[in-house]
């Protein structure tokens, strides 16, 4: 709701200018702190040094290589979670006995941090992409199942009566009611889970693999290159921002937008 009014009333240039201003301020504060903290460049590099390092990393291709590696893992794990988690949530939402049986199990597994699975993941899948993808899958799967299931349970029962009244086939109930009805909540859930997945991938890469932004950070730490560490952090933040932006845009498609109004 706020989203809606905020966007229609606010002049376009303000939504661009304001973040630029706050980021400038952030960099300024960072610069001031490094100048007056008394720490050396090796311990707490300033913005200028870090930007030069980012430039270096971009030029020699390292940054691109690691970013692609991380994005690949997130995408793979995330898609795996989507194609299994959303249908599972839809089935549980419409099938009472299944929900009663499995919901406690899901609620039990959900709060276990994906990072706690790292030892088992490495044991089962070895080193490389598979354990990382598995961890991301775990981090996204449970939230997706739960939010999809909740969304299905919250569908107005009158809609199913309308379906019966209009002789909908089972297929039509899924495509014309269940799917569009849960879409706003599911997109909301995707937005949150992609954030979680992005958090998890960095942690996973510090342990199980030798590529990716997490690995870049760990490797730079071992080489005592704090400027590279911070370069990695900045890229992680930027990509997180972009992912969130994309998911936010999805929620504004016309046929999804009703969700903002009616909730």
């Amino acid at each position: 709701m706020n989203l809606f009014f905020g966007n229609s009333n606010k002049p376009q240039h303000l939504t661009i200018l304001a973040p630029i201003l706050s980021f400038t301020l952030l960099i300024l504060i960072w610069d001031i702190i490094t100048r007056f903290s008394g720490w050396s460049d090796q311990v707490f590099p300033g913005p200028l040094k870090v930007f030069i390092s980012i430039h270096e990393l971009v030029l020699d291709g390292t940054l691109l290589k690691h970013t692609v590696a991380s994005l690949f893992r997130v995408t793979a794990g995330f898609y795996l979670a989507i194609i299994t988690g959303i249908p599972a949530g839809m089935i549980l939402g419409r099938w009472k006995p299944g929900m009663i049986m499995l919901n406690p199990v899901i609620q039990f597994l959900r709060p276990i941090s994906p990072l706690a699975w790292i030892p088992l993941a490495m044991l089962w899948f070895g080193i490389g992409d598979p354990p990382a993808v598995f961890l991301i899958f775990l981090s996204a799967f449970f939230p997706l199942v739960v939010s999809t299931m909740t969304a299905v349970l919250e569908i107005n029962p009158v809609f199913f009566q309308v379906a019966a009244n209009f002789n909908f086939s089972r297929f039509e109930v899924v495509t014309k009611i269940i799917f569009p009805a849960i879409l706003p909540s599911v997109i909301q859930a995707l937005r949150i889970t992609v954030g979680i997945a992005w958090l998890v991938v960095v942690a996973a890469e510090m342990i199980a693999v030798n590529s990716g932004l997490g690995y870049l950070i760990l490797d730079s730490r071992n080489a005592l290159r704090m400027d590279y560490v911070m370069a990695g952090m900045i890229v992680i933040g930027l990509i997180g921002l972009i992912l969130d932006f994309i998911m936010k845009r999805l929620g504004k498609i016309d046929s999804v937008f009703w969700g903002n109004i009616s909730h």
Partner: peptide, 19 residues
């Protein structure tokens, strides 16, 4: 059971909001 030969218009709006 319900059938499209007799249509019920519900007490509260039952238009599909996504259509």
């Amino acid at each position: 059971g319900p059938s499209s030969d007799h249509i019920f218009v519900f007490q509260h709006s039952s238009l599909f909001p996504w259509m």
